[in-house]
């Protein structure tokens, strides 16, 4: 089922916001094909009547009271910022979001 070519590796890397270096494109591409071939084993099973599991416990709709509480002070929220300006996180300009 799986056979990812170079263009697909670059496409997936772009979706994941990873700028891969040339040697990574080659190495990762080969490894991805091996790994996908191994995990494609799941398609051997006919599971058309089996519901999916997204969560291991039977927990639904956990509600909480809407009570105001103190939030993180601005200085702490910005404490780990790579770059800030005033009370904002600063990023390079331009480019798509």
């Amino acid at each position: 089922m799986a056979n990812i070519d170079r263009d697909q590796v670059l496409h997936v890397a772009r979706l994941a916001r990873l700028e891969l270096r040339e040697e990574e494109v080659e190495r990762l591409g080969a490894q991805l094909n091996d790994i996908l071939a191994a995990v494609s084993k799941v398609s051997e099973l006919d599971l058309s009547d089996v519901p999916p599991t997204s969560h291991p416990l039977d927990v639904v709709n956990v509600w909480a009271e809407d009570e105001p509480r103190p939030c993180l002070p601005v200085e702490e929220a910005l404490a780990n910022a790579p770059e800030r300006e005033g009370n904002y996180f600063k990023v390079p300009p331009g480019g798509p979001a």
Binding site: L18, E19, V91, P92, G95, A97
Partner: peptide, 10 residues
């Protein structure tokens, strides 16, 4: 910004 994201992660 896009280049910053992609290079940071790489």
């Amino acid at each position: 910004r896009l280049e910053m994201y992609e290079r940071t992660r790489d």
